[in-house]
């Protein structure tokens, strides 16, 4: 069984987690145009390489961010969403 490290609960079987898709900037629903709104809802970059994704540890309903390589499926890092600004400033 593949193991993923939950920032709250520690290392757990991957079957305890749900992937919720890539992290991307929210749009302002009041001012955004149709094309941008459509792009926000239905398009994903789908790049080959390391991406940031939302994941959820299902038994504790804890949402966090994982960095995963889409080609090798290796999970590089996991961290709380509150750490994202600090990590983005560093990179």
């Amino acid at each position: 069984m593949k193991i993923m490290n939950c920032p709250l609960n520690g290392p757990r079987n991957i079957s305890e987690f749900t992937c919720l898709g890539p992290v991307h900037d929210a749009v302002d629903a009041q001012s955004v145009g149709d094309a941008a709104w459509c792009h926000y809802l239905f398009y994903q970059e789908n790049k080959a390489g390391i991406i940031r994704e939302w994941w959820r540890h299902t038994p504790s309903n804890y949402y966090f961010i994982a960095e995963r390589h889409t080609v090798t499926d290796e999970i590089i890092a996991t961290y709380s969403a509150s750490e994202l600004p600090r990590i983005e400033n560093k990179s």
Binding site: N9, R12, N13, S15, E16, H57, T58, P59, S60
Partner: peptide, 8 residues
């Protein structure tokens, strides 16, 4: 917080 008998 985990799974027992395949249940959360």
């Amino acid at each position: 917080q985990t799974r027992v008998a395949q249940l959360d």
